[in-house]
Write a protein that binds this DNA or RNA. Structure first.
Lengths: 220, 220
DNA sequence: GATCGTCTCCCCCGTGCGGGGGAGGCTCGC
DNA sequence: GCGAGCCTCCCCCGCACGGGGGAGACGATC
């Protein structure tokens, strides 16, 4: 059974782009489109998508309000993936507070977009740490950090995973972590993979960046 | 021609350990030992070692004063590698300010110790980022950070290398950095290798940690 | 008793990474 | 003119890493 997606964006071009990227995957199916947040609720009720890819800036009802509305009124709501255009970062953590499961920059590569859809469909919350870093760097203090912190809290790492992430953030290799925790390297690899998936990180470097950006570990 | 090393530590056991580790390498030769900082200067003049591995805490003349004395009085002074026992972190950045080229925890693995000696012998300054992180975590704010910052300043990254490190700290892969800088991936690999060598980092994750710990990049 | 989540360990497999070399072209300063 | 430093690109090579599977043991929860 494929992952079903509903696209919500006021720009037809963006919808077409997302559709092209997602439908290229055999396990993802775009079941509908909407041009405004106001149209989302009936469509969600009718189509029962697994994931809603939702723009934040839209006329009538923006992505944040639409997210709140969906989560408030729909039983077994879909996962909400907030799509942002890079300029409107302050909306991002608002959306996360509203209950969105992750966000994504429009300028992300196709592979990243596909990855994001699959991850939220599986119930993982995510962000791309590098994206947060970029946002934070370009729009003053605070917001990017709050967004990252919000995602880290939502990441729901288990105790063991958090322990592994802390050791990763101290520069240890898998073998060294295994030695430290007195377990096998395969076990460590399992935990590392879980951490990467939950944080939406591609590799251990991005995971460590997320740890710093979110305040999970602090410099100095 | 092998790298020649002078060992300076008041504990014979530590000297014996360092000697065993270093002499196991065909390209490293321990040419002398001293039990106190006061004996260092004549020995340096006589033996002309490439590297002095110096403990910080010693009777009569500590490692910091000994470092200052050597650099002040000897022409073409050797590289100074400060060996610390983990408890005395506040001495570390003092030693770096005094002109030491790097430091090393006694509990480092043999391979790391050898690596450190080779690096400083080649003229690179270094530290082990994970070690700094550890120090900083265990002894409040400031000191570890200052030590890391001092090393980062001493690392003398070129403009290009600094640019590459910034992109590494945003989670980009070598291929992505190459794309961004409009150069080949082999070029990026060269820069990355240079950054790792200068920072004494084993992999890109440790380099990013060093970047955060030193304030080279800042979270939020 | 059955289910779920966590922690543990195992397999295969591709590839990005990093070490080890080398080399040409460029600018700058001596 | 000549070297030093930097940037660029190339080769070979081993390995840690990470994806994608699966599976057993344990405790908590239902």
């Amino acid at each position: 059974m494929p992952v079903t997606v509903l696209l919500v964006d006021d720009e037809p071009l963006v919808r077409a782009g997302l559709r092209a990227v997602l439908e290229a995957q055999p396990d993802i199916e775009v079941v509908g489109e909407a041009a405004d947040g106001a149209a989302v609720i009936p469509l969600v009720r009718q189509l029962r998508p697994d994931v809603v890819a939702m723009d934040v800036r839209m006329p009538l009802l923006d992505g944040i309000e639409a997210t709140r509305a969906v989560l408030r009124t729909v039983a077994e709501p879909p996962k909400i993936l907030v799509v942002t255009t890079f300029e409107n970062d302050e909306y991002v953590y608002e959306a996360l507070r509203a209950g969105a499961d992750g966000f994504l920059l429009k300028r992300a590569r196709p592979a990243e977009i596909v990855h994001a859809v699959r991850l939220v469909a599986e119930g993982e919350s995510l962000l791309f740490p590098a994206s947060v870093r970029r946002l934070a760097a370009e729009y003053g203090e605070g917001d990017g950090n709050r967004a990252a912190r919000a995602v880290m809290e939502r990441a729901q790492l288990t105790e063991r995973e958090a322990e592994v992430l802390r050791l990763m953030a101290r520069g240890l290799s898998n073998a060294e972590i295994a030695e430290r925790l007195v377990v096998g390297t395969e076990t460590v690899k399992s935990h590392v993979s879980a951490v990467l998936a939950k944080l939406g990180a591609r590799d251990r470097t991005q995971a460590v960046i997320a740890a710093y950006e979110s305040g999970f570990v602090a410099p100095g």
